[in-house]
Amino acid sequence: MKQKQKTLAERNAVTAKIMLAPLLTVLLVLGIFPGIYLVWTSLTDLQMNNASSGNFIWLSNYLALVTDSSIFGSALLKTLLFCLAALPIQFVLGYVIAKFFMAAVDMKGTGFLRTVYMFPLMITPLSVGLFWNYLLNPRVGAVNFLLQSANLPLQEWLSDSSTAFPCIIGIYLWQWTPYVAMLIQAGLLSIPGELYESARADGAGLLHITKSIDLPMLKKVLGISAILSLVQIVQTFELVLATTNGGPGTSTLVSAYAIYRDAFKYFQNGRACAEAVVLMVITTAISQVLAKYVLKEED
C-alpha cells in the first residue's frame, strides 16, 4: 500500500512537471535573452544611433541616476504618485461596479451593458490618449462644452500644471477600471451564494458583507489584480506621449515615458536599460510584498 502511494505521488510529480513544461520552456527560451540583454546593456554606454558606442562602463549609468539631479528621479516619484492616487480609486470603483453588475446579473440587458462598459479596454491606449486630448482641449473640446452648457467655469485641463496630472489619472481610470471590475466580478462569481444568504439572514449590512465575506474571499483576486494594475500603471507612457509630452513643465513626466524617450528617441540605450532595471527592481519588490501577503495563507 505504502509503495503504491509513493508511485502515485511520483506520478503526480511527473504530471505536474509535464503540465508546467510548456510554460517554463516558453519563459526560459523567450525570457532569458531579453533578461541578459537588459542587464548587460545597462552596464554599457550603448547608443544605437552611434556605431562607436557600446563600451563597458561598469555602473556609471546607475551612478548617474542616483547622483545627478536626474529627471528620472522625479519621474519615479511621479509614477509613485500615480500608483498611490489611481490604485485605490480603481479598486474601490471597480469593486462597487462589479457588485452592481452582480446584483443585476439576472436582468435583461445587463450582459450588453457590461460589454459596453468594457469598450474603453478595446481601444489602443495611444489612440485613447489622442482622443481624450481632443475631448479635453480647452478651446474646442466636448468637456468644456459640457461645462459651458451647465454654466460652470471652463477649465484648462491638460494645459495647466495643477490639473494635467489628475487628467492623466482620470483617463487611465476611464480605460482601466473596467479591467479591474471584470476581474473582481470573476472573483465574486466564485463566492457561494449561500454565504450571502446566511449573512443576510443574520441581518448583516452591506459594509459587514464586504468586510466579512467579499474581502477575505476575494483576497487573492484583489492581490493579483493589484499587482497587474501596478504593472499597468508603471508601464503607462502612450497616454503621456499622446497628450502632454510630460508637460506643462514636468508635471506629467512619468518614469515609463522617460524610459521610452531615452530608449527610442534619444537612443541612449545604456541609460534606458539602467532605468528599466531600477524600475523593475522597485516594482518587483512591491509585488513580492503583495504576493507574499496574498499567496501565503493556504500553504
Partner: peptide, 10 residues
C-alpha cells in the same frame, strides 16, 4: 486658453 499645451495640431 490651452496655450501651455499647444502643439502643432492645436
Amino acid at each position: 486658453s490651452g496655450a501651455l499645451n499647444m502643439a502643432w495640431n492645436e
